[in-house]
Design a protein around this nucleic acid. Structure first.
Length: 478
RNA sequence: GGCGCCUUGGCCGAGUGGUUAGGCAACGGUCUGCAAAACCGUGUACACGGGUUCGAAUCCCGUAGGUGCCUCCA
């Protein structure tokens, strides 16, 4: 079993070989916690979660770090608007804590395992201290310079040290708006130089920072946050860096530059795995276009958050996903059908009447599923395998379905795809089972009135009875 | 302007030189105490124009349309 992943650094699918076979290291760019996440944001985390699940399914132990960007322009601006009476720092903490918690709720709702993640916050004291140290080192080594509004990273110095800027996205003269190098002491030297640290502006939260005897009290730049947090969480280099494709440039490119400037090892992360966007009407879902849905919007439209997860998994992570409520409904129906199959495990047995070779797809499915996922997370292929296996179940009498085979497949689905088919379909109560038996006896006696009444009773409890030629089968009503 | 990507049947969405992807929806039929389900059947799919090839949705060139990044963005 070998796992292949597409690496943005090489633009190719590569065999995944961890630096340390005992512990795979993954860093995922997390949310900026200034507002509710929209479902486009969430889709990136579904991809990251699925990636970790698949690596785990290959029997690796994984350390998966995700950051909270809880200090930047947007969090500061929003916190001042929302809590104008609080001190700047308190307002920032209040706002980011609130949305951080809401984010975690959304994560769990869409099936992402937050317990498997280690979260690091940019505004934590230890992170800030790490950033001060890193900036100080970069400055000492000549890769950073002090301007009147902050500290900048010099891409020119970086390139002169023999490193490559433009590993993820090709940087050409024509797509940089300006690349003249002027050694002004107090200005951003080149258009692409980016801020490592920004000096405090009036009524902004700030942390002390003295560099080269100059008081630079202020706050970190965006890119340095992730370099420091990944370093603190995973060391350097680490195995896989994930994020939305929009982060490839400049964010990840800049992370690479900061983290490898002056280092002997030119590697920051071995692989970058980037997911494509969720589209609405063919356009990227974004706050600025206003064409976004939050998870709550979906719930208001009766879309199960896990159906949204299935919708995301229905398309390959490196292809855009078209979102519409109609598509969400299709995913919801597909998930409902899968839950019907999952509920069958309570109605089957470990010993089966006939062990014919009919259930080929069911038995082969767990292995085929992992094989598909190991092929650069080919979730659409994986879903097809599941559909085939479940379709086979529907035409198979309960007595001929081996419970163990079904449970094995469900375990594989839930562990790799996180669809929670089993926890969403618990067994029915003994009373309810008795009702089904009583109803069946009434049917045998052709007492339709009693049997229909009992069927309605069960329906009121959310359970649907299907009378097959092999006897009654129950499922949850959706 | 620079660097990319995309265009598959009603909708979504895999495939990527020759063999039915799959889902959702729709229509017809069988079965059924009723209901539900199930089962069987039904769709002249690969943007357009050239080229390569025994053979192209798949490779090459061009055209059209769409879209992403280059500024905060998952």
């Amino acid at each position: 079993m070998t796992l292949k992943l597409h690496n943005t650094l090489t633009k190719k699918a590569e065999l995944f070989q961890p630096l340390d076979p005992e512990l795979v290291s993954i860093y995922s760019c997390g949310p900026t916690v200034y507002d509710h996440a929209h479902i486009g944001n969430l889709s990136a985390f579904i991809t990251a979660d699925t990636l970790r699940r698949v690596i785990s399914a290959n029997n690796y132990t994984v350390k998966h770090v995700m950051n909270f960007t809880d200090v930047d322009d947007k969090t500061i601006r929003r916190s001042r608007e929302t809590y104008p009476d609080q001190e700047a720092m308190d307002a920032l903490r209040t706002l980011t804590h609130t949305y951080g918690e809401l984010f975690l709720e959304d994560m769990r709702a869409i099936g992402n395992d937050t317990d498997a993640l280690e979260f690091i916050k940019a505004a934590d004291d230890s992170t800030i201290e790490g950033m001060r140290q890193m900036i100080t080192e970069l400055h000492k080594a000549g890769f950073a310079y002090i301007a009147d509004d902050g500290v900048y990273f010099s891409i020119d110095s970086y390139k002169k040290s023999g490193k490559t800027y433009g590993q993820l996205v090709e940087i050409t003269d024509s797509n940089t708006s300006e690349q003249r190098i002027q050694n002004d002491e107090y200005d951003k030297d080149a258009a692409h130089d980016f801020a490592l640290w920004k000096k405090q502006k009036p009524s902004e939260p700030a942390w002390e920072f003295i560099l080269d005897g100059i008081d630079l009290t202020g706050r970190p730049g965006w890119h340095i946050e992730c370099s420091v947090m990944s370093h603190q969480g995973l060391g350097r280099p680490f195995d896989i860096h994930t994020g939305g494709i929009d982060l490839a440039f400049p964010h990840h490119e800049n992370e690479i530059a900061q983290s490898t400037a002056g280092q002997d090892d030119p590697t920051y992360a071995r692989m970058f795995v980037h997911n494509e966007h969720v589209l609405v009407d063919g356009k990227k879902m974004s706050k600025s276009l206003g064409n976004f849905y939050t998870l709550q919007d979906l719930i208001d439209h009766q879309v199960d958050p896990l159906a949204f997860r299935l919708l995301v998994l229905q398309s390959h992570y490196r292809k855009p996903t078209s979102f519409s409520l109609a598509n969400a409904e299709a995913a919801r129906n597909r998930l409902a059908n899968w839950r019907v199959a999952a509920a069958l495990r309570h109605q089957t047995h470990d010993t089966i009447a006939d062990d014919s070779e009919k259930k080929v797809s069911l038995r082969a499915a767990p292995h085929a599923l992992l094989e598909a996922l190991n092929d650069d997370l080919n979730t659409p292929q994986a879903l097809m395998i599941i559909d085939r296996a479940f379709a086979e179940l529907e035409s198979t009498p309960l007595a001929s379905i081996h419970r163990h085979s079904l449970s094995t497949l469900l375990d594989m689905i839930d562990s790799t795809l996180g669809l929670q088919l089993q926890s969403s379909t618990p067994d029915i109560s003994d009373d309810q089972k008795q009702l089904i038996l009583t109803r069946q006896r009434a049917r045998d006696d052709k007492d339709w009135r009693t049997s229909d009444t009992l069927r309605d009773t069960l329906l009121d409890q959310g359970i649907v009875i299907r009378d097959t030629s092999h006897g009654p089968v129950w499922q949850y009503a959706y």
